[in-house]
Nucleic acid binder design. Structure first.
Lengths: 199, 199
DNA sequence: CGACGCCTTGATAAATGTCAAACGTCGTGG
DNA sequence: CCACGACGTTTGACATTTATCAAGGCGTCG
């Protein structure tokens, strides 16, 4: 999937909540978050998107969340109408788009599931997700700060911090510095969590 | 979209978590819930589906949640592979499928957003959702019991019950009997909630 | 009509949020 | 190059919300 590459500085808006849905986006490099800010100031992160991830694929006329660059990022942009028109004549592309959308459903549902668990389970699930998506060996280089993690997990930064401290104390992880996490015990990360999907 | 209509009795399983994804489903009549049961017995409802809603549209090889009939229900069933093959040659169908999937993303994200709010906000949001989807005038005939509502909202039945009692006391709603809710003050249902999407 | 299961209500406990302050780190300017 | 300052993080004490445990009332369905 092609499109024009555009660079975004750290913490800049890619599109805003309420803006018309014109484009579909694909991360080339960097990291992107989708954000919703409630009227009373509470902030909720819908998801993180890393290299090769597609975001902004929405059905309504308006974006229901805004998107921001977590770090300096490059993003490919293509008009949604163009993409849909291309897909009308290209069954393979249409299927790929459908798969992308269905994948996003799965992510959102996993996210929703996670939000009803305990603080420690949420943090563990977050670390597992980051392990699956951006780890290099046992090392996870987080692009985002505690506030983003907290708003993604529906917790406060204090609770996230305390939980990470607990996990460090239990030698499940090791944190040489704030945004670097070394996974020491992947088995412990799985503890007390969802029944695995596999039978 | 066609397919074979099948009847399911109340509380029977339509498909199970971990089973291969073979079919896509459309509710003809009744109500369906998707469910995930955690290893420790906690139960989480991913969503409710009513007449004309499509469910079971997943990307993996296995269902990540199971689906059950909330009440006696009739459901149309079509093979996913058949549907995808048809869509490859029919741009309009492909777009419709994509829209369905994107709609589901929006629902799951709204659900996730709701789960970080207070108990009263969650119950209010649930009532608004039911108002949008199955109300007749000011009357909402809930097909599900408190336990389903609680597991959908990530609360206990006790908390749901207490909150409904509060809302009744405040004359926001009126409950002549357990599963019948009359909306008395829609404005109050909107209070203290998400910034509306519209600008 | 009766019994089971659901719903409601109450008392108590546990988890997380809030408020406040100290610590560390990183970037900047002298 | 070093010192300062701002900001993010961690830690602590306390408040608040919701879960848990328990019991009674009531509706619903056989």
């Amino acid at each position: 999937m092609l499109g024009i590459p555009i660079k975004f500085d750290i913490d800049t808006e890619i599109y805003g909540e309420g803006e018309p849905v014109e484009f579909v986006y694909k991360v080339v490099s960097g990291a992107v978050r989708t954000v919703k800010v409630l009227s009373d100031g509470r902030r909720k992160i819908g998801g993180f998107y890393f290299a090769r991830d597609i975001f902004g694929l929405e059905d309504g006329d308006e974006h229901s969340l805004s998107a921001e660059a977590v770090t300096a990022s490059t993003v490919r942009v293509i008009k949604r109408r163009t993409l849909v028109r291309l897909a009308a004549d290209d069954g393979e592309l249409a299927e790929e788009l459908l798969m992308t959308a269905m994948h996003e459903v799965a992510r959102a549902q996993r996210h929703a599931l996670m939000l009803v668990m305990t603080a420690q389970e949420r943090v563990k699930d977050f670390l597992r997700e980051m392990d699956e998506r951006i780890s290099v060996g046992d090392l996870v280089q987080l692009p985002m700060w505690r506030r983003d993690i907290a708003d993604y997990l529906g917790l406060t930064v204090e609770t996230v911090s305390r939980t990470i401290t607990e996990l460090s104390a239990a030698s499940t992880i090791h944190c040489p510095c704030n945004r670097t996490i070394m996974l020491r015990d992947r088995a412990a990360l799985q503890q007390g969590t969802v029944a695995t999907v596999s039978i």
